[in-house]
Design a binder for these strands. Structure first.
Length: 845
RNA sequence: GCGAGAAUGGCGGAAUUGGUAGACGCGCUAGACUUAGGAUCUAGUGGAUAAUCUCCGUGAGGGUUCGAGUCCCUCUUCUCGCACCA
């Protein structure tokens, strides 16, 4: 390739550019300018198309980790991309600042949780700034700030008015380490989600939010979430756990409790005639009265004692042995008046259904095993066609498939699926049962017996009962002067907080001393960002309706049934309260993969933590961003590689040298493309426009940030190839100039600092981030010739270059010119020729 | 056990959805420039082979097709989720 024949008409690079991108000064320079000039302020009005880009806000634990870096890098590319594409972008950041670690740190280091938290926020914010993230910092929130939780409390009162808050005493998940109760969602495999301690059960009163009122809507609306990963939808579906069935009323037969109702839930009402015994959970409230004074009392008490000591993980392990004890009492099966024994057993759970089951050993595997173990009677009631058994005695396992009802009085001969409906309908007529829907989802327990959280704005008055704090008295401030010991609720010991006057009767009263689950705070922060400095309201409904829903939400999958479920519920509730008018908060959800090292999640205990701060210091933010985006697709796990960052940093340096070595020429040249271009220049232009299209499609269609970067790298390689003879013909230079500008614009979402710097260095005014995203010109993709693959019997045997408009016959003729092809053809007449336009010709012989 | 996803060079990963497998990057090899190189540049790099011939090659085995990493069947392994849910 020869770009120039004489030095007068060609442009040479500056030879001495061998430097590295001086990221320290340059990155700081741009970060300062972006911040001072509020470049990333989100406009509440302007372009019609809005893009709300959100990353899950962090808990301010002190320093960013690689997961954060990845999360924010992805979000930042998307925010910057849509910004350049003409959207008004809302890209905020804040801190999920209430929570136990602050309290634990306070106990350990004798520093106030507030101080610890705000120091950490400062530190993390510095690191986020150093990453060059395009946040609108004027909208930041910290959930521990009274100006934030004031409105959290206000919203709580709205929930209260709506009847979504109630108090209940019951067995609750207790984390002995955190010294507080946990919601069901926060117990993972029997362990505390935060500290991995074994969760025990404790009987105590606490506050609940009626998320179950929304169970059906939360389930049904999952179908609307087409932008969510299927995995998360499945997890939420399982968590809600809707199952249709029937509730059937059994009664105690004989004894003191004669006639007491025992409702059971079953999904198999068609098997009711096969119910040969009944089982209550050991914790079932009726058990005490059933066994008390009876012949089985001692045995039952011993059993209950044993089960209660068993931890839940072991007890609910499927492999655990099914054990139980007869209570001595009987119940009546309402469909046939049969007297059946009532047992208690470890395989029935008090928290699911009604805590009691009708046992049908022939058609439920658990009941089958239990009945065989304890010699309980069995009766076949569903008989499959060509059954290998004729009676219960011949069965080796429960039959849970379809069949015809037998031994079932008037229902005999009915196919069981039809029987389910018929039996339920008949029971409803007889007033002994009816259709019902049961959910696995429980109400959301929000009381926490800890200090560093939002005070629940309720007052206990001996005369007036529980009374909400009047709105004009909000916020209920979290007192600063507390003694933190890690034992007992700190607020309960704080006299001046505890004692107050009743808003109704003005008499002495006590404040609620539980604080709220921090998931309450994070269930609406994305609404507050929209109107973060509003002192008159939680947010302006109109603004929220305008910006919401979040167009892209990015975070880890660990919140699939925690934060993401609570937030969906919260939005539905505030919609019904009348504050917003949309149903779902997050249109598209991207669950980013973990960052691993040596194949394992980074963690202090494994000693495989790489500190993002050190990486930024050593290689710069742009290199760190490029590496973490390039190495793996966003949703997949990413294995950290020190070598990989070096590669990213080399890429940045290569661009720096390439552009700077022509900076002066680029600065002074403004001439237009003369139309008199060399082949090389045309090729370069084609490569650039191909890259524009590919990068744009990758980002828009599937957030393919790794491949987008790969394609920019290819383009840079093309540019190097173009300049490899050093001189660029003057007539070709406009193309090179275009290439540089295209490169910098494509690069700017990924590596914003170097893009901004070089944009300026080549003599442009303003910010590259304020430039429109490049649009490819299809005309420039055209070629005069095309290269096709010639296959013989499906194997590649050669390549031909033909005019772009060549048809199959022309390609065939061109192929015949090649010795390699004719050798393979060996004078045979092709049986068939398959021509795929612009791709290949396959010759079958 | 059930459900979802995955398996491609030494490594991370590409492949326009049935059309040149291994883009891009790391690593490695050789060379250039260097006092030096962990800077930079050039060339090479799936395996077999003397070979730019050719053969083999996308977890394993079968199938559909002119043509399969991609579609179908069987199996293996791994990851994640659910897991006595009545």
């Amino acid at each position: 390739m020869s770009n120039a024949s004489s030095s007068e008409s060609s442009i040479h690079p500056v030879k001495e550019i061998e430097a590295h991108f001086p990221f320290q000064e340059v990155e700081a320079k741009w970060q300062k300018r972006w911040q001072n000039e509020k470049v990333f302020a989100a406009p509440d009005s302007g372009p019609e198309k809005k893009f709300y880009c959100l990353e899950m806000f962090p808990y301010p634990s002190g320093k960013l980790h690689m997961g954060h870096l990845r999360n924010y890098a992805i979000g930042d590319v998307m925010a910057r991309f849509y910004r350049m594409n003409g959207c008004r972008v809302l890209h905020p950041m804040g801190y999920d600042a209430f929570g136990l670690p602050a309290e634990n740190a306070a106990i350990k280091n004798r520093v106030h949780p507030a101080e610890w938290t705000f120091n950490n926020i400062r530190e993390m914010r510095e690191q986020q700034t150093a990453l060059g993230l395009s946040y609108d910092w004027d909208r930041d929130v910290a959930t521990c700030h009274e100006k934030y939780y004031k409105w959290g409390q206000w919203l709580f009162l709205k929930f209260w008015e709506k009847g979504l808050v109630y108090r209940k005493e019951g067995l609750l998940n207790w984390c002995p380490d955190c010294q507080t109760v946990l919601a069901n969602e926060q117990v993972v495999n029997g362990l505390c989600w935060r500290c991995d301690s074994v969760v025990t059960q404790k009987f105590m009163p606490q506050w609940f939010i009626k998320i179950t009122d929304y169970a059906d809507e939360l389930l049904n609306d999952l179908d609307k979430l087409t932008g969510w990963p299927n995995k998360v939808l499945v997890m939420q579906r399982n968590w809600i756990g809707r199952s249709e069935g029937a509730e059937i009323l059994f009664h105690v037969a004989g004894g003191e409790k004669q006639g007491t109702e025992i409702p059971v839930f079953t999904t198999r009402p068609d098997t009711i005639f096969g119910a040969t015994y009944m089982v209550l959970a050991p914790e079932h409230p009726l058990v005490e009265s059933l066994i008390s004074g009876g012949s089985q009392e001692a045995e039952c008490r011993a059993f209950i004692e044993k089960v209660s000591k068993m931890d839940k993980t072991i007890r609910t392990d499927e492999a655990a042995k099914k054990e139980g004890v007869f209570t001595g009492s009987y119940a009546v099966n309402p469909v046939n008046q049969e007297k059946i024994p009532i047992w208690i057993a470890n395989y029935v759970l008090v928290e699911y259904g009604t805590g009691a089951i009708m046992a049908v050993p022939t058609h439920d595997q658990r009941d089958f095993e239990f009945a065989r173990e304890y010699g309980l009677p069995m009766r076949l009631v569903i008989k499959p066609a060509d059954a290998p058994f004729n009676s219960a005695e011949e069965m080796t396992e429960a039959w849970i498939g379809e069949g015809i009802m037998v031994n079932s009085a008037q229902f005999d001969g009915t196919p069981n699926e039809e029987g389910k409906k018929n039996v339920t309908k008949w029971m409803a007529e007889q007033r002994i049962g009816g259709a019902t829907v049961n959910y696995r989802l429980r109400d959301w327990g929000i009381s926490r017996q800890r200090y560093w959280g939002m005070p629940i704005p309720l007052i206990h008055c001996d005369r007036c009962g529980i009374t909400p704090v009047p709105e004009d008295q909000l916020p209920v401030d979290l007192p600063r002067d507390v003694e933190l010991t890690g034992e007992g609720s700190p607020l309960a010991k704080h006299e001046s907080f505890l004692h107050t006057t009743c808003p109704k009767c003005q008499g002495p009263a006590r404040r609620e001393t539980d604080t709220i689950d921090t998931f309450w705070d994070s269930s609406w922060y994305f609404l507050r960002y929209i109107d973060a400095r509003n002192t008159e309201a939680a947010f302006d409904s109109q603004k929220v309706n305008d910006w919401m829903p979040v167009d892209l939400y990015i975070g880890g999958v660990e919140h699939a049934v925690l934060h993401l479920l609570y937030s969906r519920f919260f939005v539905k509730a505030v919609r019904d309260i009348g504050l917003v008018d949309f149903d779902e908060p997050f249109t598209q959800l991207l669950t980013q993969g973990m960052v691993t090292k040596d194949g394992a999640k980074m963690s202090k205990s494994k000693g495989n933590v790489v500190d993002p701060g050190e990486i930024i210091e050593k290689y710069g933010a742009d290199a760190a961003r490029v590496f973490i985006l390039f190495t793996s697709p966003p949703e997949r796990d990413l294995e950290w590689s020190d070598q990989g960052v070096v590669g990213a940093s080399r890429f940045i340096d290569r661009i720096y040298r390439l552009v700077l070595s022509y900076a002066d020429a680029l600065k002074s040249s403004s001439q237009q493309d003369s139309g008199n271009l060399s082949e090389a220049a045309k090729n370069l232009r084609r490569a650039c426009h191909k890259t524009i299209k590919a990068v744009t499609d990758d980002i828009k269609d599937h957030i393919g940030l790794n491949t987008a970067i790969a394609k920019i790298m290819e383009m840079v390689n093309e540019m190097y190839k173009f300049t490899e003879n050093d001189a660029i013909a003057e007539s070709d230079f406009p193309i090179f100039r275009d290439a540089v500008e295209i490169l910098l614009r494509l690069l700017s979402p990924f590596a914003p600092h170097i893009s901004a710097e070089l944009w300026e260095a080549i003599g442009n005014e303003g910010y590259v981030i304020s430039q429109p995203w490049p649009v490819h010109n299809p005309d420039f993709l055209q070629t005069d010739t095309m290269m096709l693959v010639i296959q013989i019997n499906g194997k590649v045997r050669g390549k031909v270059t033909v005019p772009a408009d060549a048809d199959g016959e022309a390609v065939w003729q061109a192929a015949l010119q090649q010795e390699q092809i004719t050798r393979w053809l060996n004078d045979q007449e092709p049986k068939k020729k398959i021509y795929v336009p612009k791709k290949l010709l396959n010759i079958v012989v």
